[in-house]
Design a protein around this nucleic acid. Structure first.
Lengths: 211, 211, 211, 211
DNA sequence: GATGAATGAGGATTCATTCAT
DNA sequence: AATGAATGAATCCTCATTCAT
C-alpha cells in the first residue's frame, strides 16, 4: 500500500527523516488494519527500526496514531478551506470535486483512516469533529443556502446531502476492496478515476435540479 | 449499543440459549470495535460467562466472528433476493429502499460490521463477496439494464451507481457517529429515519432522470 | 478410587468394555507422549467419548495413568515371578530371555511407559520400585549368586549386570525409534525379533564366561 | 539437578549472559520433566526472570528446547568424531569408553535429554538422527568391520551391538533413578563411576571374544 | 538517536475437573 | 454411563512501554 511515503515531505528538515518514515509506515499499517490491529513492533519492523526507537519520536502508540491523522488531515482541510473561499465561482462545485478526488487519489490511506475513526467513534473522532469537520460543514451549509442547492431541497435535508456527498466522494476510496472484489473493477486505475470524477459531477448536477 | 439481543429469535427458538447470547454480545462488540479491538474476555464478560466457556460454543474467536457475520447477513440477503424477484413492479425501487432501511434500522450493527470487513479487506470479505454480494450485484445489474436507469446513464457507470447506492443506504448507518457529532443530528431517531427514507427516494428519482 | 482395579480382568463382564477401551487408548497415548504430553481430551477423543465420561471410569488423569501402568505391569511381574521359581533349570536364562522378549513384543508400550517413569523419577516410580522391581531384583540377585554368573564377576558388579540386562532387553523396545531412524532397521519385524533373541542369548553367554 | 550451569563456558565467554543462564535452567528442567512437562514460566522463574523476557532470547519454547539440545550435543559429537580418527590405536575402545563416560559424567542431563527425544520420536529426533547420530554410526560400523569385533559376530548383528553399547553407556545415566531406588546404589558417586568404567571395559572385552 | 533487555498486563486458547441433565 | 456446559488455573506468547547502555 506504500503510498504514504510519497505524499508529504519536508525534505529539508534534517530531524525529520526518521519521524517521517515512521509516520509513513504507520499510516499504511493503520489504514490497513486499524489502531487495534497494528502493533508497535510491526511499525518498527516496517521502518527497519527497533521497537524502542519508536518512542524516541512519539510518546506512545496513540500519539503516533494521532500524529498520522493530523498530518494526513492538514492538506485536506486546506483544500476545503480554499474551496470555501471561492464558493461563488461559477464552476465551484465541479472544481471542488476534481480537487478533492485528486487529493484523495494521492492519499488513499486518508479516507480509510477517517472512516475507521468514524466507525470506532473514539476519542479522536471528537477532535476530528470539532477541529476539522465542523468548520467545513458550517461553511458548506452556508454556501448551500446561497446556492441553487437551496431551492432544490427542503431545508432540513442539508445534513443528509452533506452526508451523501461525503460517502460518494470518500466511499470511492474506503470501499475500494469492495469495488475490486465484487464489481470486478480496479478503482485505482487512471481510467476509473477519471470516470468517477465525471460521475460525481453528473450526480451533483442531477441532485441539484428540482424535479 | 445492545441491539443485537432484540433482533432475532423468540423464546421458543432452539438457538435461543447461550450460543445466541454470545452471538448477540459479540455482534455488539465487534460492531463497536472491530475484530482486533475486542477480546474474548470482553465478550465472555458481556454474557456473564467465563472466558473458557466461549470455546464450548465456538471453536475460536475467528469462528465466532464469522458466525456473527453469517447470522447477520442471512436476513439481509433474503430481503435482497426477494426484491430481485419483483423488480418489474411499478414501485419496486421505492419498496426496496423502504424495506432495506427498515431492516438495517433493526440491525444497526450490520452495516458497521460489513463496512469494517470491507476496510479490513480480509479473508472473510472474499466469502462475503462471492457468497452474498456478487449474486445481488448481478441481479441488480440485470434489473438496471431493463429499467429506465439504463437510458439515464452510460453503460459503464453501473458499477459506480451500485457503489453509490450502497454508500447512501448503508452509510447512513455506519457513519452514524459522524452524523451525530458533526451534523448535530440524531440518526437513530424515528424522525430522521423517516426523513432518510424520503431522501433516498428523492435521490433515486433524481439520479434516474436524464438531464 | 480403586475402581480401575475392580473393573479389569473379568473379560466376560459387560460393564467393562468402556473402561478397557479407555485404558487401551490411554496406554498408547501415554507411551507415545508421556503423562504431561497427553490431554484427557485426546484420550476421550481416541475412544470416541466425551471428556467428562472419562471421569465415570477413573477418578483423575493421574489415576488413569497409574491404572494403565498397573495393568501393564501385572503380567510382566508374573512372568518374572515364574522365572524366579525355576532358576535352577538348565536353560533357565535362555527361557527367561525368550519369554520376556515375547511378552514385551506383545506389549510394546510397556517398556516405553516404564522408561518414561524412570526418567521422570516421579511418585509412581517409588511404587514401581518397591512393589514390582525390588522383589524381582532380590530374587535375581539370589539366583545369580548360586549360578555360574557369580564366579564370573566380582561381587560388587551385580547391580551393573542387572542394569545392563534391563537395558539390553527393554532398550530394544523403548529405543525403537532410534533403531528405525539411525540404524535403518525395522525393530518390529519378525525377523529382527528373532535375531534379537538370539543376540540376547549370545550376549548372556559371553558375559557369563570368565575371561 | 542444577548441573547445567557448571558445564560450559568461562566468565569471559561472550555467550555467558542471560541467554546462557536460560539455557542452563532449561536444560535442567527439560532433562527432569521433558518438553511437555516444563512451562516457560518455570524456566523464567528458575533464572529469576519474567516470562516474557525468555522471548527476548529465544523465539519460542520449542526453539529454546532445540537450542538446549544443540548446545549439549556439540561436545559429544566432537568427542565421537575425535575417537573415530584414532580407531586403530591399540586401546582405542577403552579410551573411548573412558572419555565418553567422563564427558557424560559432566553432562548428566544429556543422556536424559537424548533418551526423552528418542521416546518422543519427534521432529527433533529426525534432525538428531540425520545430523549427529548417523555419521557416528557410520564410522562406528566401519571401524567394527576392521576390528576384531567383526570376526566375533555375524555380520547382521552390528546394529544390535551398536544399540547395546548405546544402552550400556548412556543407560547408566538416564536410568540413574532406577539404580538409586531399586538397586540401592548411588550412581553419581565417584566410586560407582569408576566401577562402571571398569565394568564397561570388561563387557566390551567379553563381547568381543568369539566363543 | 538507537538498541537489547526487561517487565506487568493481557492476548487467545487449552487444561483437568465438576455438575446438572 | 454419557454428555454439554461451566470454570479457575494454566498454557504459550505478544502487548506497549521503560531503561540502561
Amino acid at each position: 500500500m506504500g503510498k504514504a511515503s510519497e505524499q508529504i515531505g519536508g525534505v529539508g528538515d534534517p530531524s525529520n527523516g526518521t519521524s517521517r518514515r515512521i509516520l509513513d509506515a504507520a499510516e499504511d499499517l493503520f489504514a490497513d488494519a486499524g489502531f487495534a490491529g497494528v502493533s508497535v513492533r510491526e511499525i518498527a519492523g516496517a521502518v527497519g527500526l527497533n521497537q524502542a526507537s519508536i518512542y524516541n519520536h512519539f510518546s506512545s502508540k496513540r500519539a503516533l496514531y494521532e500524529a498520522v491523522l493530523d498530518r494526513g488531515l492538514r492538506p485536506l482541510q486546506e483544500t476545503l478551506a480554499a474551496a470555501a473561499l471561492s464558493l461563488d465561482a461559477p464552476d465551484a462545485g465541479d472544481r471542488l470535486l476534481e480537487d478533492l478526488t485528486e487529493q484523495l487519489w494521492r492519499s488513499p490511506n486518508l479516507p480509510r483512516l477517517i472512516q475507521r475513526e468514524i466507525l470506532d467513534d473514539g476519542e479522536y473522532l471528537e477532535r476530528l469533529a470539532e477541529q476539522w469537520l465542523r468548520p467545513i460543514v458550517e461553511e458548506g451549509r452556508g454556501a448551500m443556502e446561497k446556492s441553487s442547492w437551496a431551492a432544490s431541497w427542503e431545508s432540513d435535508s442539508d445534513s443528509l446531502i452533506i452526508l451523501l456527498m461525503y460517502h460518494v466522494i470518500f466511499g470511492y476510496f474506503f470501499s475500494a476492496p469492495l469495488t475490486r472484489r465484487v464489481l470486478g473493477v480496479e478503482p485505482a486505475s487512471e481510467e476509473m478515476r477519471h470516470r468517477q470524477v465525471e460521475f460525481l459531477k453528473l450526480v451533483a448536477q442531477r441532485l441539484m435540479v428540482s424535479s
